[in-house]
């Protein structure tokens, strides 16, 4: 496979890769680095790409593994960051300025979801992934995905109203 074929094959996934990496790891520079690493790995293994049936899920798995490895190196563990977000975290000048921009406020709340819920929420709402596909990618039980998705959806809404009603 030459570089033109490779580009044609993979470039359509770049935004998706970046968004997914961003939901797994912050700050943004680290997410960019993850995507760059995955691209290099894929380029180095380009000969075997032909044999892969579901390229998107292969790429997204690579993004996940690379991001989680990086988190590990940073001394952070994705699974352990579970747990409810303290509503007081939103009592910041940053939140006050976003109050008038509903979409920005929602973005901020989603960003502060616990990592697993955030990834599930974003894969469903932004990438339109089926529950089974999310379960496979994140190596979780489909029911677990549904429960976490439900919690995340409710939590974003509740937090949104709490902030808007000045309960924080």
């Amino acid at each position: 496979m030459d570089k033109k074929d490779f580009n044609l094959k993979l470039l359509p996934y770049q935004a998706k890769m970046f968004r997914f990496a961003r939901s797994l790891i912050s700050p943004q520079e680290e997410a960019e680095d993850v995507v760059q690493d995955v691209y290099l790995k894929l380029w180095n293994n380009r000969q075997s790409l032909r044999k892969i049936q579901n390229l998107e899920s292969y790429i997204m798995r690579a993004v996940k593994n690379t991001a989680l490895n990086k988190l590990n190196k940073m001394g952070r563990i994705w699974e352990e960051l579970e747990g409810s977000q303290d509503i007081q975290d939103f009592n910041t000048p940053e939140t006050w300025t976003e109050l008038n921009d509903t979409k920005k406020l929602i973005a901020m709340i989603v960003d502060r979801l616990p990592p697993r819920q955030r990834s599930i929420f974003r894969l469903r709402e932004i990438e339109y992934y089926e529950i089974e596909a999310i379960a496979k990618l994140l190596e979780l039980d489909p029911n677990n995905v549904k429960v976490n998705l439900s919690i995340a959806r409710k939590k974003v809404k509740e937090t949104f109203y709490k902030i808007v009603r000045h309960e924080v």
Partner: peptide, 19 residues
Amino acid sequence: ERHQTIPTVFDQKINVNST
């Protein structure tokens, strides 16, 4: 979010030609 453009440097960073 779905239609958000990715960072400008991003295109350059994954420029496979240069890789």
